[in-house]
Design a protein around this nucleic acid. Sequence first.
DNA 1: AAGCGGTGCAACCGCTTCTAT
DNA 2: CATAGAAGCGGTTGCACCGCT
Length: 162
Amino acid sequence: MVSQPYLKKGTWTINEDQKLIAYIMRYGIWNWNEMPRFAGLQRSGKSCMLRWMNYLRPNIRRGNFSREEEETIIHLQKELGNRWSAIATRLPHRTDNDIKNNWNTRLKKRVISENDKSVPASTTEIYSSVEENSPDADSSSLLNIPTTADFPEPSTCSQGST
DNA sequence: AAGCGGTGCAACCGCTTCTAT
DNA sequence: CATAGAAGCGGTTGCACCGCT
């Protein structure tokens, strides 16, 4: 495939986020592979999908997992294994990637060490006030989205939306 | 004050599954 | 029913930041 002469990688910029959000708000999601071109992004469809799913979607809550959330993750991980998307469905405002990261970086170690010591969880005091963030503070609300951006019409690509 | 090591987060890659033709 | 394309999932890697020596 040589549909893209150059595909940017690495950290997304605010400008790229704005373009993607504005495009999806205006035209919706119709084809991840084609959308980046119309949105004026030098990104792969996969990269756009990942960015949207994990950070730009509305009602996403990131960081500062509450004690309840972490215990839920631990419990579900025992039940379901590493089915992060399944676990994420039980935590509506969390993404599978965020849950996976939290597990890999924190919870796994904690569970292992607790199992090793075979003592009740002494983690309660670790959590202080971690309930500060709200779903309202999702990423998109922090961006100044140009909702009237003049994107080319996706219909020119013979897509079949509705 | 500088360097080193550890931790956590964001993103990419490859594989699998699902849907349409 | 088979094949191709798109989407989704999980594992892994790289980078940035923070704390310690």
